[in-house]
């Protein structure tokens, strides 16, 4: 089954049975019925696509629509009076810059540390057989399943006891611990994909172990490191639950907390949905871009583990 999930979701499927020559020997009635079925399937598929894409479209459209028009009924479903004022107002508001800085600091630190730590651990478990290896792998696999909700009370107490509530360091440690297990697992697959023989061949050709690593192994691992880095980015950037307990001060909010606060503040004077959607868009756009870059690897990473073997 290992091939199952290696195939990208977007890969072209084989030609459907109806397109094949042997279909012509069937009666015309089956042909007509099958055609009707295909047309129906196409219509349903378009309807499903609309339902799934509509909230994203509605967010972007509302972000670009003046609030007065958004309040008017019936709603307009296409761009009619585009404006940048919602986005401009949100960006120039003081709270956005603070939250963005906080998010960038926390995410940046987390991604770097996660990548470094996970890479070393992935090297250890894929290149070495040692006593305690299975115990470590088992720990990693169990820890990655633990929900934040089962730990955040203790994490809150831990940070408040050490004076690290509302600090970049405190929450980054928690994020790193939460993200490192799956990243180790992901990178392990990539490291195993680079045969150790390759490194040894380079060493026979006169490179030292370090040189062989830097010149041969690392370049081959670059795609894996990029995918893992984007995974860590998405996790840290979107995280809400741990941030809610670890960053109670308004001045320390990351973007997801800020968005929640933005909506609450707006609700006090009748929600300005145009601005709220502009705020959502600012949170979502970097994620959507990164996600589209990396998604095929994430699907296979999550499922492949379970299916292989």
């Amino acid at each position: 089954m290992s091939a199952t999930v290696r195939v990208r979701a977007g890969a072209a499927a084989r030609p459907a049975a109806a397109d094949r020559p042997d279909a012509t020997v069937r009666s015309r009635r089956t042909g007509v019925r099958r055609l009707a079925g295909r047309v129906l399937a196409g219509l349903v598929a378009v309807a499903v696509s609309l339902v799934w894409v509509f909230p994203v479209y509605w967010m972007l459209l509302s972000a670009l629509t003046p609030n007065a028009r958004l309040r008017a009924m019936p709603p307009t479903f296409w761009p009619s009076a585009a404006t940048w004022s919602n986005l401009r107002d949100v960006i120039t508001g003081t709270s956005f810059a603070t939250a963005l800085r906080m998010s960038l600091a926390v995410t940046g630190l987390t991604v770097l540390v996660v990548l470094g730590f996970a890479f070393l651990a992935a090297l250890a478990i894929s290149r070495f057989r040692f006593r305690g290896r299975t115990a470590f792998v088992l720990t990693v696999l169990i820890v990655q399943m633990l929900p934040a909700e089962g730990l955040f009370i203790a994490q809150y107490k831990m940070l408040s006891a050490t004076g690290l509530l509302n600090s970049v360091i405190g929450i980054s440690v928690l994020y790193t611990a939460a993200i490192v297990p799956f990243t180790i697992w992901m990178l392990r697959g990539f490291v195993e994909g680079v045969p150790a023989d390759l490194e040894e061949a380079a060493m026979i050709d006169g490179l030292s172990r370090t040189q062989a690593f830097w010149r041969i192994t690392l370049p081959l691992l670059a795609p894996g490191l990029v995918a893992s880095g984007v995974y860590a980015f998405l996790q840290a950037w979107n995280e809400f639950t741990v941030a809610l307990v670890a960053l109670p001060a308004e001045s320390a909010q990351t973007l997801p907390l800020w968005l929640r606060g933005f909506l609450a503040a707006s609700a006090n004077k009748g929600v300005d949905w145009g601005q709220v959607m502009a705020a959502s868009t600012l949170l979502a756009v970097p994620v959507i871009i990164f996600f589209l870059v990396v998604q095929s690897r994430m699907t296979s990473g999550l499922v492949s583990g379970a299916v292989k073997g």
Binding site: P256, M277, L283, L292, Q295
Partner: peptide
Amino acid sequence: VLQVSMLLAWAMPMVAAVTV
């Protein structure tokens, strides 16, 4: 078309999705 709609919905950050 269907796959791209699925991907866009999947890519939405949770807090942004709930807000929308």
